[in-house]
Structure formats: structure tokens, C-alpha cells
Design a binder for these strands. Sequence first.
DNA 1: CTAGATGTTAAGGT
DNA 2: CACCTTAACATCTA
Length: 260
Amino acid sequence: MPELPDVEVFRRYLKRTSLHKKIKDVEVDRKRILKGITEPKFRKKLKNDEFKTADRRGKYLFVKLKKGDWLVVHFGMTGFFRYYKDPGAEPGHPRARFRFANGYTLAFDNRRLLGRIQYAGSMDEYIRKQKLGPDALEVDFETFSDALGRGRSTAKQALMSQKYLAGIGNIYSDEILFQAGVLPKKKVSRLTEEEKKNVFQKMKYVLEKSVQYKADPAQMPRTWLIPARGKGGRCPRCGGRIQKGKIGGRSGYWCAECQQ
DNA sequence: CTAGATGTTAAGGT
DNA sequence: CACCTTAACATCTA
């Protein structure tokens, strides 16, 4: 799940449920998810603090703490939050739990343990060190065009490179290129100005709409690729066969009729 | 049983 | 140097 739209939905969820509540304690079930800080230090830092607000860059969530520092959350391939009171509502793979004074818990669920929680002094500094590119929902066309203009990679790989453009992963890159009518394997060096503009426009459209759909494929229009992706089905627009192949080590889906 | 799954990153290559 | 590719990470499911 977690690409830009998913993380934006998680950010809003956290803002809605977990701000301005005293953190009584933190439990870390699997310390592998902590990066750059030990469990005792992590617990000590958070105890009696509060989440003040939440920001985002690409797939990274930044939670500002009342005492001034930041929590940096990355969901990996299988992460999400759940806020609950009844222990029966706990998700299947909670790896960290923030216990609030009001009796509620925010759990960080992360089945495959590829997600990470870090502690950082500054959001900007973290982004710089991590070499994260501009957020895909914020980037302007000039910057986007430059990002796509460099290198010898394919369109799909360029969209997914967090260094030049932060937030797009395997699933949404397929959707954006499908709607833009561009083959994922097309080299960026061979994209015309018109194609770049179209990819840019469709990128904004797909990401904005997906946030509105709560990043839930069931809510997406049937003219989109995502709901049909991986089901070995037909193109929702032309009825042609959906193709599958490896692009940059990831499996991509596209329509050979609609995309060129 | 095996292969593959929404991501990042270290290590190796061009 | 800048960029590209691959394997590994841990767990579950088709």
C-alpha cells in the first residue's frame, strides 16, 4: 500500500486521531523497526511528550513533537496505523504502540518489517541527508522535466526514483503511465515535450484523486488500471490484454494498445 | 513448495 | 563521478 496517496491518508488519520494527547508510554515489539536510536532512548524521548502536527515528503511521514524534535515514519511495503481503545481492535502485526493517557493506543503495524521509525532533530535536515527529491504533489513542471530529462532510465524508473521525485512507487507509476498513454519501458531520453507535459498532468491528477479515494482501489473508477492490475484481465479502456513484465527489477503492468 | 508482493539500500558494475 | 542493476531484508499468500 504505502506510496504517496497512502501515506497522505495515514498522515490525515494520525492528525485526526492522535494529536495533543499525552503519551504515557511506548512499546516496541520488534526493535528492527527503529533506526538510529535504541529502544530505551526512544521510549524515554517520547514519554510525556505529545504529537503536535504531521507533515509529509513523498512516502515519509514527519510527526512533530511538542518538545521540538521529529519522528520520521516510513511504512515499507506493508505498514499502516490503527488507533483504538479495545485490545480486540489491535491489528495483526503491531511493531510499536504509542499508549496515550486517554486510554487509546496508536499502533504502527508492519507485517514484513520493512518499515522504519526514526527520531530526528529537523525535518529539512533529514530530507537533505536522505537526498529526497521534491514531493510529487508539490513539484512544478520545470523541476519535473529536469528530473525526467536526466539519465538513461525508463519512464517508470524515473517516476519511482525518490531522489528526483518523492512519493511514487510501483503501483502508482503504472497508473500514471497508463493514463498518460506512455509505455513504462520507454526511455526518458525519448519522451517528447508533449508526452512529458501529459505525464506531469496525469501524475498530479492520479495522486490527487487517489488521496480523495483514500488510496482504496475499490473506490477508484473502473477506467483506472489499479483495480484491474494483476488480475490478468483486460484493459479497462480498450479491452486489450494487459501486459506484465519486469522493468527495473519491479513488475509493471500496461496496455500495449493504449500506451506507446 | 515456490515465487512474488506496494520499498529501501548496500554492493557491485558501467 | 554519476548512474544503473541486483540481492537482501522478513513475512505471508497465491
